[in-house]
Amino acid sequence: MGGSLAKPVLLILAMYAFLKFVVPNLPGSAPLPSSLIFLYLMLTTTGIVVFKTLSRESKDAFFAPILNFLTGENIGAMSAARYGFLILFPLLVGWQTYGSTATSDAPPAENRTIHPAPPGEYTGLSNPVSKTPENIMQGKGFYAAFCSPCHGGKFDGKGPAARGFNPPPANFSDPTTIAMLQESYLFWRIKKGGVGLPIEGMPWKSAMPRWEVELPDEWIWKIIMGEYDGAHQSPRTWE
């Protein structure tokens, strides 16, 4: 036993190390979930087995050391590792079974859609308020009065009232929030608030007020202009 197994083993270990330690550090990447790592390792293993069984000779050369290892025939100093494997395998099966059957202490998973689709009547609306410095300034004033307690004076979602809310108030300076949305989307979200969200937006958790009961539409459009200007972002357009 030896050479014919050493390469596949090293290949799988290298693949594991790559997925576990290298991929998360690539630019724009994130740690892979264990289920995905498991899937990749299984694909790698399958590929190796297919490659090694293309011919009778390579198949025998591949499986012979495995059979010898399992039966203990002519493995010399490998006996200790064999016993270790024979003990470890049932224990791992037991562990895996426990993990999949034991009662979980984790609360139910929540999959919230951050930007759910707006109702049709809000799609494609354009801001009727002209984009003048005066209107932008007025919008910033309304923002300071009505929005900044949660969304922050710096448009970063870190207002003094924000800390207890889950989900947290949106950070407008983050390029993945209002910069990805059209002004009509913001008009809908501000007007109808958290309770206007569809079910995938978890309307029961959002603290966003339903501003239509307190602010005229014109003020909301001005607030939108003030938000984009203050956060140094531009609305998404289709042009």
Partner: peptide
């Protein structure tokens, strides 16, 4: 040869552990 056998044997056990533990639930 002995060293190569050890690498293969211990590696095989480690790979099995990796694959099986990949299916097990992540640590809390």
């Amino acid at each position: 040869n002995q060293i190569r056998q050890w690498v293969s044997g211990v590696g095989a056990v480690a790979v099995t552990a990796l694959i099986l533990s990949g299916a097990a639930p992540g640590l809390a």
